[in-house]
């Protein structure tokens, strides 16, 4: 099976110049954990997830989760989010984005997702323009 047979043809994305506040609104309303970042022509230039936002607000948060430490003050996260909410998405996105094209084999995508611990991989055309997304659940559904 190929990517085009299992992908979700949804172009939900955020523009690189949009604010973190706009990104959080989009993720909350669309119930997505992360979205591709695109330029004004729709070319994928990055990927950003809620994890990247938390990382931006509290750089040590994920390390703390692995240890016996705990979040000392929830207001700390709130204050920091308030400080960075107008920053552009491009400051915090993952630039070295992993993407696939529609004709790739599903086994290749499964390998990428497992190796890189990804939930969602953008699908792009020959010009790098976003054409959809492959989610971990799409692969699992296709395997059933």
């Amino acid at each position: 099976m190929r990517v085009k047979d299992i992908m979700t043809r949804d172009l939900t994305a955020v523009r690189e110049n949009q604010s973190l506040k706009a990104l959080i609104f989009l993720l909350e309303k669309s119930e997505l954990s992360g979205v591709p970042v695109i330029d004004k022509r729709g070319t994928v230039v990055g990927f950003i997830s809620e994890r990247d936002v938390i990382q931006a607000a509290l750089p040590n948060y994920f390390e703390m989760l692995r240890t016996a430490s705990y979040l000392p003050d929830i207001n700390q996260l709130s204050r920091r989010l308030e400080e960075i909410k107008e920053d552009p998405v491009s400051e915090y996105m993952v630039e070295d984005v992993i993407s696939v094209d529609e004709d790739e084999e599903d086994i290749h995508v499964a390998d990428l997702i497992i190796r890189n611990e990804l939930n969602r991989v953008p699908v792009v055309d020959e010009d790098g323009m976003l054409t959809g997304i492959v989610q971990r659940i799409d692969l699992l559904g296709a395997l059933l």
């Binding site: 979700t8 043809r9 949804d10 172009l11 939900t12 609104f25 309303k29």
Partner: peptide
């Protein structure tokens, strides 16, 4: 689109094979 109804619309269009690119509202 917005809310539960918005998500239902988006999901049903995807099932029809339509590419979606909606703007979310509160």
């Amino acid at each position: 689109i917005g809310g539960h109804t918005g998500r239902t619309i988006k999901r049903s269009l995807r099932e029809e094979g339509i590419i979606t690119n909606f703007t979310w509202i509160s």
